[in-house]
Design a protein around this nucleic acid. Structure first.
Length: 568
RNA sequence: CGGAGUGUAGCGCAGUCUGGUAGCGCACCUGGUUUGGGACCAGGGGGUCGAAGGUUCGAGUCCUUUCACUCCGACCA
């Protein structure tokens, strides 16, 4: 390609809402264009090119693993989503609208329903299984607050795959195969990533893993162990049970007057007791389908923090929201003095598993200015769930070593779904005995457009993008410094023709710009290598540039051909 | 949804307080000079000042309503 012919609107100025490197450089480099704000982007030629390359790698590896590509209709009849029960559950992110006949439709944020519908109409026998179908298509999620450019847009390109099996074992085999396939994809893209244990979120299902591209700007917190392989999203992370070295406050059960002692910290000081022996009681409002809600108390040790996603899952709610003072009072609770043992009739209480069989605990009395001491939960029947947010320094449940936090960009997510969709949607097959069974499913996603952002988050400097080999918009850029210099032009054209002939994807910068402007653009675009034909051509010298680190290697005109032929 | 802010040329902004010819930088077009780090000179094109209503001889500017977007928070495969 000739630079003068391709639309690459680079800019010197940064859009004022861009804070992330990927957002800034993708826009400044003319890869993408914002569409009136609001999380929508156009892909310009260069951006489209990179997107296609990433997409091709995803497709290549999936096809090698035996997956088959399809394309589902983007607009989905709401009836399908009502069948699965997600029309209500998915919330406001789901864009719903009506057609001229007043029928409900949605724009697909993910396509379990559509794919199950496709399969249930066509697959009837165990002989047709297993099957792994995917598509790489636009998705739409009406994000509350789109930001960070391609990282969190409302419309985005996603690969979503769905597998169908006659048994759980076979689904697990496919799940492992997809994990390996995803690793190959991310490795080919040149990304540093980590596979982590994850929460299953709105899609539901059991075992799920996320593929996290490691970057400080990542929106997800992941807990990793440097000693072993354990890594998990903080939403799902577990730890080795904490022990407390401080002495337990032995006491007989009693009510204690504790004025103005509303926080764990204050309570700890008041009784001179380690927070480990205090019960933290957190009240939240749980939201369910059809606008139903209830107040729920979550009880855990004072030394722990509540993990909101775990808490939400524990009560099987769609959402947990903060509760107002008024709502607390209406529920018969007293802020600062809540406890899990004496609660108003009918109020749901969930205990953290760390409280199981705990003794010598102090908790609120649900009475102004009073706490209860000497509580024992030994043998107490209750609703126990893991509710704890793992903190940095907590010990690894696998090897016992301290763990730490790091940040990641969620670029892939694989789920073991089971029969969660096939059952309600009636996706059944006949087994060897002629008996109808629901198909066992897995689902696998990759945020393809998000990957562009992730690649740049991990590979950039203060000048612009540094694309990895397999993601780069071009393999090589040939820069003619001064197009009025006929020798420079002649050599540039010659090398350009040579590379084209070899099938190298090469960009020839033959614009009538000055040297500085062309170099700035080169750095912004981030093509891995460049040949700079400039002033020293009169001495028979040109430069071979490596974008990563901007390493310049001066070389003779005679040698450059060989360098190029050898490298590409 | 809560808090704060902004809407003026493709992008970034000034002008609004104190009403009176629509401005600046970047980008773009023409001509010339320039060519190793986003050049310079001269000339030029481009606007329903977010929308609607009101006050006024006159509104980008004042009043009312409304819409959109951004930032922080909440939220988020």
């Amino acid at each position: 390609m000739r630079f003068s012919r391709i639309l690459i609107p680079t800019t010197k100025e940064t859009p004022n809402d861009a804070t992330l490197a990927s957002h800034i450089y993708l826009i400044r480099g003319g890869f993408i264009q914002s569409v009136g704000g609001s999380g929508l982007y156009n892909f310009l030629p260069l951006g489209k090119k990179v997107l296609d390359k990433v997409r091709a790698i995803v497709k290549d590896e999936l096809d090698k693993a035996g997956c088959q590509e399809v394309s589902l209709s983007f607009v989905t009849p709401a009836a399908l989503w009502q069948e699965s029960g997600r029309f209500e559950k998915y919330g406001k992110e789901l864009l719903r609208f009506k057609d001229r006949k007043n029928n409900d439709f949605i724009l697909g944020p993910t396509h379990e329903e559509m794919m199950v519908n496709l399969v249930r109409q066509t697959v009837k026998s165990y002989k047709q299984l297993p099957l792994n179908l995917y598509q790489i298509n636009l998705k739409f999620r009406d994000e509350i607050r789109p930001r960070f450019g391609l990282m969190r847009g409302r419309e985005f390109l996603m690969k979503d795959g769905y597998s169908f099996h006659s048994s759980v074992e076979d689904m697990k085999r496919e799940f492992d195969l997809m994990e390996e396939t995803y690793k190959k994809i991310f490795t080919r893209l040149g990304l540093k990533f980590r596979v982590v244990e994850a929460d299953s979120g709105a899609i539901g299902g059991s075992g799920s893993k996320e593929f996290m591209v490691l970057a400080d700007s990542g929106e997800d917190t992941i807990v990793v162990c440097d000693n072993c392989e354990y890594a998990a999203n903080v939403e799902a992370a577990v730890r080795k049970e904490k022990v407390c070295e401080a002495e337990a406050p032995e006491a007989v059960f009693a009510k204690f007057h504790t004025p103005d002692t509303k926080t764990i910290e204050a309570l700890s000081k008041f009784f001179h007791v380690d927070p480990y022996y205090l019960v933290k009681t957190v009240a939240k409002k749980a939201l369910y389908d059809e606008g139903k809600s209830e107040v729920v108390l979550f009880a855990l040790r004072g030394s722990d923090e509540l993990q909101i996603v775990k808490a939400c899952n524990a009560v099987n709610a769609n959402d947990l929201v903060d509760i107002t003072e008024d709502e607390l009072a209406n529920a018969g609770l007293i802020a600062g003095y809540m406890g899990p043992t004496v609660v108003p009739e009918g109020l749901k209480v969930v205990f953290d598993t760390n409280l199981k069989d705990a003794s010598s605990m102090i908790c609120g009395a649900n009475e102004e200015d009073h706490h209860l001491i000497g509580n024992s939960f030994v043998g107490v029947e209750a609703d126990y769930h893991d509710l704890v947010a793992v903190q940095e320094g907590d010990l690894c449940s696998c090897c016992g070593e301290p763990m730490r936090y790091t940040k990641g960009i969620e670029a892939g997510h694989i789920f073991q779904l089971g029969t969660q969709y096939s059952e309600p949607l009636g996706a059944n097959f006949l087994d060897e005995n002629g008996k109808a069974q629901p198909m066992v499913m897995g689902t696998y996603g990759i945020g393809v457009s998000r990957l562009l952002a992730a690649i740049i988050e991990q590979n950039h400097d203060d000048k612009g993008c540094i694309w990895t080999k397999e993601s780069a918009p071009f393999d090589l850029q040939i820069i003619i410094s001064n197009i009025k210099d006929e020798d420079q032009v002649a050599l540039g054209e010659k090398l350009y023709a040579l590379m084209l002939e070899k099938g190298v994807d090469v960009l020839l910068d033959e614009r009538k710009d000055r040297f500085g402007a062309k170099m700035k653009d080169y750095e912004l675009l981030g093509v891995p290598h460049a040949v700079v034909i400039g002033k020293k051509l009169s001495d028979g010298l040109v430069e071979f540039v490596t974008r990563d680190g901007m390493v310049k290697q001066e070389t003779s005109v005679d040698a450059i051909e060989n360098i190029l032929l050898k490298r590409f």
